[in-house]
Amino acid sequence: MDVILALKKTMIAISCLTMFACSNGPEEGRGGMAEQYTNSEFAPVMPDEPLGPEHGLRFDWKLAKLHLDTLVDQGAKWCFPAAVAQAEEKQNRIARELAGDLWIDAANDIVIQRKRLNDLELKLNYVLSQARCVPPRNRSTLESQLAVVKQIFDLLNVDNQFAFNSSEVNPKYMGHLAQAANLMKTYPAIELQVTGHADATGTEEYNERLALERAKQVKRYLMIFGLEEARISTLSLGSSLPLYDGDTPGIMLTNRRVSIEVIADEAELETAMRDSL
């Protein structure tokens, strides 16, 4: 047992060191070669393979996968299907990043995934103290719910970059905002959390303000397109959590963005889905 604990501490320490490693950076699109990887199974250490920093990240990925699998086994998929679907997508993205040797990108996404799973565990524990999470009677309704959530998530997390030192929403992303807002009008149980980001240029304080202004601009347009203000929350991470590490123009552009989480009240969403059929 002591050996296992020591190994775990060693792996976690190594993964922390990789936060200062260099990334290969993405090709134009959504992550370059790492996005082409579909296999999501990793062993923390391969036989006869030298121990390197990537093993710490693989170990952390495996721990996150075990955490997610445990939550699913406890019923999270039935009480919080939207949250589980997004967590699974993030887990697969990290796997593709690891396969593409994008260590810093994987490390950043693991930080996000840990917080997401911890929040999901807290919500699940509360629900399980009051009731049970069981499969819905109508599985097709559940699949329809997840399809709607995924469609909104995909719309709002593509073409979401900003020009240098600007909070103006680009026209292509504005079109995505209009489509998502129109879709969400049918499902009032869905809410959004908009997080603003900045590149590494500028001071920490300035980047914090600029990133928040980007999030607020996105919220402003969603409201113009018909969403109620109460359904959209905003926050800023400044330049503290870049999507990719590096200082090339393409990477800096990618880091000037908003990221959007789709938050769904599962019971209300199921009712709305039935009413729309």
Rank of each mutant, 00 (worst) to 15 (best):
I104N: 08
V169T: 07
L277A: 13
N24T: 11
T10R: 09
L222H: 07
G226R: 12
L253V: 02
G52P: 00
V218Y: 00
D69K: 07
E27M: 11
E268H: 14
H67L: 00
M46R: 03
V169N: 02
G25K: 06
R116M: 05
Y173T: 06
H176N: 14
L210P: 07
V148W: 03
E208L: 09
W78S: 15
L66F: 02
E208C: 03
V169R: 04
L210Q: 10
Y187K: 09
P171V: 02
D48F: 01
L253H: 03
L128C: 14
A200N: 12
T38H: 12
T70Y: 07
Q179D: 06
I251K: 04
A181K: 06
E228V: 14
S15M: 04
G100I: 06
D199C: 09
T10C: 12
I190R: 06
S239V: 01
S144T: 10
T271Q: 14
H176E: 08
D265R: 12
G246E: 02
F59M: 07
L227D: 09
A64F: 00
R257H: 05
E229K: 15
A64R: 07
K185I: 12
M11I: 04
E204G: 12
P135A: 12
Y206I: 10
K150N: 08
M174R: 09
L269F: 13
Q74H: 10
D48L: 00
K216Y: 00
T141V: 12
E88Y: 02
L253F: 02
V111E: 00
G196S: 02
M174D: 05
